[in-house]
Design a protein around this nucleic acid. Structure first.
Lengths: 129, 129
DNA sequence: GACACAGTCAAGTGGTCGCTTGAGTTTCGC
DNA sequence: GCGAAACTCAAGCGACCACTTGACTGTGTC
């Protein structure tokens, strides 16, 4: 069990690497063995295994060994976690902007120009006494 | 100008850190100065500035200096980029699963059991001769 | 003009990352 | 049984990361 912050740490960190995103893109098209995943990549098999371990620790990939072959597949839940974090922040920002727009459109209000630095209604929000 | 892969590298790397995600969450609620952002955090101001630089390099934050105060704000486009990458992979995986489900449901088909290792219809996709 | 505020810059440090190499181990096909 | 295939493990290495400290620069206030 790991909380949401740890989960996000692992997921975003895992996806911050191009090789690992490539592995995810490949696995989205269907499961594959470690050797199949490593074949097109310009690095050692051991390196690919390490990348897979990062993805598996993040929960993005799960794998199962049968005989001498380890088969890997996507587990999409962590992707959803990252996606909804991003979506929540973005929509939060958009609704704030909308509210700000409504405020500016209200009659008798003097809207700031483009030369004015960007400032919200709650600039000193977290400021202590 | 930087291509999508570089953009994703920077965005996911920037969001892989808890402190930086915290800065984003704060900035979603409205713009703030560097000192305001640093005040509640248990680290030096210089460290916060470094985090902000990472976010700004990723394009997630933009900032403007007026007088001696630098005011930071969210720029949501990179968040969208990350969000849609995640969404595309996830939906890609889901549609593949749907197709697989339809295949299994088709009459006369012998579906694999739970004890069978996970395998798609295209396991040997990238395998060379 | 003196002083403090808000930030900037540069150097340094311990830790982690991505990758390699080399030496196992287990399993499959003959 | 024997050799090849498919990993697995561990050590090592250069680069990068998060953070600190200390010196410095521009800006507002008295």
């Amino acid at each position: 069990m790991l909380n949401e912050e740890e989960q996000l740490d692992l997921v975003f960190r895992a996806l911050a690497d191009r090789t690992r995103r490539g592995l995810v893109e490949r696995l989205v098209r269907g499961p594959a063995s470690v050797s199949e995943l490593a074949a097109p990549l310009p690095m050692s098999l051991a390196a690919v295994v390490q990348h897979l371990r990062v993805l598996e620790t993040a929960g993005i990939v799960r794998s199962e060994k049968v005989g001498r072959v380890r088969t890997c597949a996507i587990a999409p839940d962590p992707l959803r976690t990252g996606e909804s974090w991003l979506s929540d922040r973005r929509t939060g920002w958009e609704t704030r902007l909308d509210a700000l727009g409504a405020l500016i459109d209200s009659p008798g209000h003097n809207p700031p120009g483009q030369d004015t630095p960007v400032r919200g209604p709650n600039t000193v929000e977290g400021t202590p006494s």
